[in-house]
Amino acid sequence: MHRLMLGAVALLTGAMLAAPGSAYEGVDVADGGSISGDVKYQGDPPAPAKIVVTKDNEVCGKEKTSPDLIVGADKGIANVVVRISNIQKGKKLAPATTPPTFDQKGCEYAPHVLAFPAGSTVQILNSDGILHNVHTTSTANPSFNQAQPKFKKTIEAKIDKPEMPIKVQCDAHGWMHAWWISEDHPYYAVTDAKGAFKIADVPPGDYELELWHETLGKQTQKVSVKAKEDAKISVQMTKK
């Protein structure tokens, strides 16, 4: 009985795990539309937080601006992950031609939010020439904590399963953190410094757009995509 139940649980879990992965089907998209737009801060954005640096000042500098919330001149919010959360079918998830790179420069991560297709091998660079460590907190993928001393210019990390977000931090420099987004479909984008994004080749249909920002949380938005047309979206986010 026990074993049977375990079996059933394993089956169920298997089914549940398999569901999101198997849900997306790659096909040819001929008459795709696109979604573009921007994400803006609603109300007056708070002044960017400052971080006083008290370690490795020669490399890291004396003061940093916190990457927790970066609002541009026109109130555009950078580093918002914009993704279609309910797409079943669309263009194939092409493996990246060049692997995603993730640099540690001036004791900051660049980019602060890195999105890539699941199965990618992230090239982690250390441009600083001091000891950093790359410590991820993951659930779907195994967490790791890899030291990257001065003599290791590049290390690699393969992320097999879709997961969002994976927090990345450096334990040697408490302020250093970043986010990785591993996707099982290609319809995602990260907003630029002006808060703008674009998602192309979307098969016509009604979708749910999910927006995620590390400090502002998650928000969803309905969107209709018509063949060969651009669906314009403007979203506002604010601190809750």
């Binding site: 904590n145 030291a147 334990d171």
Partner: peptide, 8 residues
């Protein structure tokens, strides 16, 4: 698991 000590 989860320790701040990284793997060298």
């Amino acid at each position: 698991p989860g320790t701040k000590m990284p793997s060298f």
